[in-house]
Computed example of a mutant assay.
Amino acid sequence: MAVNGYGVIGKRVADAVARQEDMELAGVSDINADWRSRMVTQKGFRLYSAASEHNDAMRDSGLDVTGALDDLLSVAEIVVDCTPKHVAARNVEIYREKGIKFIVQGGEKHAVTGHSFVAEASYESALDRDSTRVVSCNTTSIVRTLTALKPAGLLHRARGTLLRRATDPWESHLGGIMNTLVPEPEIPSHQGPDARSVDPELDVITMAVKVPETLAHLHYWAVQLTRPAEKEEVLEAFRSSSRIALIRMADGLTAINTVKELMADLGRPHDNLYEVALWSDMLKVEGDELFYGYMVDNQAIVIPETIDAIRALVGKVRDPKESIAKTNAALGIGAVTQALGGQ
């Protein structure tokens, strides 16, 4: 498989693919002639130029460029497009012309592929398709947590408030916001409708505000259950998802920076938090109402989903549980719960 675009998501996808026993990374394409592309070849990946007008600049900078994007696509079975927002929608025509399967990320509209992906909710409907869209970090977390409540017969409707990081950490010197909060101008914010593109049965409304930090997103949810329930029953439902890590304030994980530090101590590449980190001791159940909060690593949560999406499109692994288990093992998902002694 190929990765087109070696930014925040692309480099993590490439690293994750390299860890899978049943995948081979054909190469990475990009347009940059700086340190980012240099990291591609230093990791032993083949580097390709994503646009012909950048060929000379990349080679003049001393980069070992194997070829152009067309060359990369000719040796790949599937491509994951990790280019900036809206660029992928233009690249799609190239992929269709080449007859190559493709995956786009959550910055693109559902209509680009006609299918939106979260492994625990829509793997089977993605089998053998030509394309899919891995939804955004926030939408991934919404679908994961609400999907965990459905098999237990607990989910009626959900209302969430999202505190969104201002920008990606590595770009915080270029923009973002300081000393203010920026509410999204419409209710619902786009994440709720986006979650329904994965599972139309979800009754979910979201509100969002940008906050002046770049580490991660923070969600607060109020869920009406189908019936009164006990806290332990709800926690057991969340435990059914291997990609929800129950954490506790009592363990010193009192803020998003402490959770990121735990990821560093676990040796995760880029301090990646692939799971939804949900505070179990904050969670509250009052009759048929459920209240909880969790953290979303905007740079990492979609990586395991992308790996599973590759398997679904190729179709060699038909069972979502089998693919999820393979991906989890390769990326060390589950280590958080083990490190905390189980929750």
Rank of each mutant, 00 (worst) to 15 (best):
P169K: 13
E171H: 14
E171Y: 13
E171K: 13
H173D: 13
H173Y: 15
G175A: 15
N179H: 15
V182M: 09
P183E: 05
P188E: 02
P188R: 07
P188M: 06
H190A: 15
Q191L: 14
G192K: 00
G192T: 10
D194C: 05
A195I: 07
R196G: 05
D199W: 00
L202R: 08
T206H: 01
M207E: 15
M207D: 14
M207I: 09
V211W: 04
L218P: 10
V223M: 05
A229N: 09
E230T: 02
K231C: 10
K231Q: 03
E232N: 04
V234F: 01
V234E: 09
V234S: 00
E236N: 13
I244A: 15
L246V: 06
A250S: 06
D251I: 00
T258I: 03
V259G: 01
K260C: 02
K260N: 12
E261V: 01
A264K: 11
R268F: 13
P269N: 04
P269D: 10
H270P: 07
N272R: 02
L273Q: 08
Y274D: 10
E275F: 01
E275S: 11
E275H: 10
V276P: 09
V276M: 02
V276C: 05
M282N: 13
L283F: 09
G287L: 06
